[in-house]
Amino acid sequence: MSDLSIPFLLAATMTFFAAGAVKGVTGMGLPTVAMGVLGALVSPLAAASLLIVPSLVTNIWQLLAGRAFRPLVRRLWPMMLAICAGTMLGSRWLAGGDSGATTTALGIALVVYAGYTLFARQLRVPPRDEPWLSPLIGAVTGIVTGGTGVFVFPAVPYLQALGLSRDDLVQALGLSFTVSTVALAAGLGARGAFAPETMGLSVLALAPALAGMWAGQRLRDRISPATFRRVFLSFLLLLGAQMALWPLL
């Protein structure tokens, strides 16, 4: 990545503030929003590298801010292990710069899921199915994460289908995203895909991302669970549409 002009740095700062604010409200969206904007300015690999530090720190903040850390870890650890394995496997595609078709397909799937759930009945996963479904969802999520740098699908729809409360859902998303970020960093690092210059910019991107997340969390505290659900699903639908159209933008 060679363009370190003032306009690029300002665009990156505003992008990470906006992405952090979205994450503060909905518990997700920082990688997808940032990848969507920065992907138009730099390569997907460079954009994913910029995300590592702000994504990791904001995810840890989100994970530790709730009260259900231990119960969620006990419930979701098979999914988290599978995410690690899948991400390490899938990161070769992102390192090779080939993620356009996968991102489009993921976007279409998110639009279908969010649209159905927003306007129809909420999907639910029976507790008896979690032992086999959690590792499967984790493995697919990991492969998708490694291939696109986006942590959303199918982990987010699955976690929402578990029927968690608003705060527990946000904390569970923090757990999934934290594991995904660490695994993605390890996968890209193992393939020599990090540049020292990019990692330095990733550290600088942390400040606007944290400021945006703080602002978003203040807003989330003021809305009802029903409003949160509508906002959450509406944003998921918009994310899917943006991902589906990404290669055309």
Rank of each mutant, 00 (worst) to 15 (best):
D3F: 09
S5D: 02
F8P: 14
F8E: 10
A12W: 01
A12S: 08
F16V: 02
F17E: 05
A19R: 07
A21N: 14
V22K: 13
V22R: 09
K23Q: 11
G24D: 06
G27W: 09
G29W: 04
L30D: 10
A34Y: 01
V37L: 04
V37Q: 06
G39I: 03
L41H: 11
V42E: 11
L45N: 03
A46D: 15
A47H: 01
L51V: 03
L56W: 05
L56G: 08
V57S: 00
T58G: 01
N59R: 07
Q62L: 05
L63G: 13
A65T: 14
A65D: 15
G66S: 03
F69R: 00
R70C: 10
R70V: 12
P71D: 01
L72N: 05
L72C: 12
L72Y: 04
R74F: 12
A82V: 03
G86N: 09
L89H: 09
S91G: 04
R92I: 15
G100N: 11
T103L: 10
L106G: 07
G107I: 00
T117V: 10
T117A: 10
F119Y: 12
R121D: 07
Q122N: 12
R124Q: 07
P127A: 12
R128H: 14
R128F: 09
R128G: 13
D129R: 15
E130I: 14
P131L: 07
W132V: 13
S134V: 05
G138S: 01
T141W: 06
I143H: 07
I143M: 12
V144I: 03
G146P: 01
F151L: 08
P157Q: 12
Q160C: 06
Q160M: 12
L162P: 00
D168E: 15
D168A: 13
L169S: 11
V170F: 13
A172E: 05
G174L: 05
S176A: 15
T178M: 04
V179P: 00
A183R: 10
A183V: 06
A185T: 05
G187R: 12
G187N: 08
G189P: 03
R191L: 09
A193V: 00
A193R: 03
A193M: 01
A195P: 13
L204W: 00
L204T: 01
L206P: 00
L206Q: 00
P208Q: 01
A211S: 06
G212N: 05
M213D: 01
W214A: 09
Q217C: 05
R220P: 11
R222Q: 13
A226R: 12
F228C: 08
V231E: 06
V231D: 04
L233E: 00
S234I: 06
L239N: 13
G240C: 05
A241G: 15
Q242C: 15
M243W: 10
L245I: 11
